[in-house]
Nucleic acid binder design. Structure first.
Length: 110
DNA sequence: CACCTGACATAAT
DNA sequence: AATTATGCCAGGT
């Protein structure tokens, strides 16, 4: 099978941090890197796109720096992204009229 | 080893 | 404000 592989050390580190993001809040790809002291926002996104530990690792609580959603379940648009938004709304995260997460809900990782 | 791709971020247009 | 170009770095081929 092509999709099956062991998570790398870097990916494990990312999951360790994202695991701790509290209900009702979100953090950003960039803030995760900062907390990690390694990699870039982009490489964190790539790691999360392969997250094999959902929902134990709540990767839906990680969004872009400007509050836009980013991706979910390997997709950057479409119904998966809608799922991500619904999940966040369920948890109490509020959205602006333009579809971005309200800045007040964005917290530092860690 | 030499590319290539990707759930990003920021600066410049 | 919206779009484009560049830089970034980890992982796969």
């Amino acid at each position: 099978m092509l999709g099956n592989r062991k998570p790398t050390d870097f990916e494990i580190l990312v999951y360790e941090i994202v695991r701790k993001v509290p209900l009702g809040t979100v953090t950003t790809y960039g803030r995760v890197t900062k907390r990690l002291g390694r990699g870039t926002a982009r490489s964190v996104g790539t790691a999360l796109s392969k997250n094999p530990f959902a929902p134990e690792v709540p990767c839906h609580r990680v969004v872009r720096a400007d509050g836009s959603l980013g991706g979910f379940d390997g997709h950057t648009s479409g119904p998966r992204l809608q799922d991500k938004r619904r999940m966040l709304e369920e948890e109490g995260v509020t959205f602006l009229p333009d579809g971005r997460v309200a800045p007040a809900c964005i917290r530092d990782a860690g």
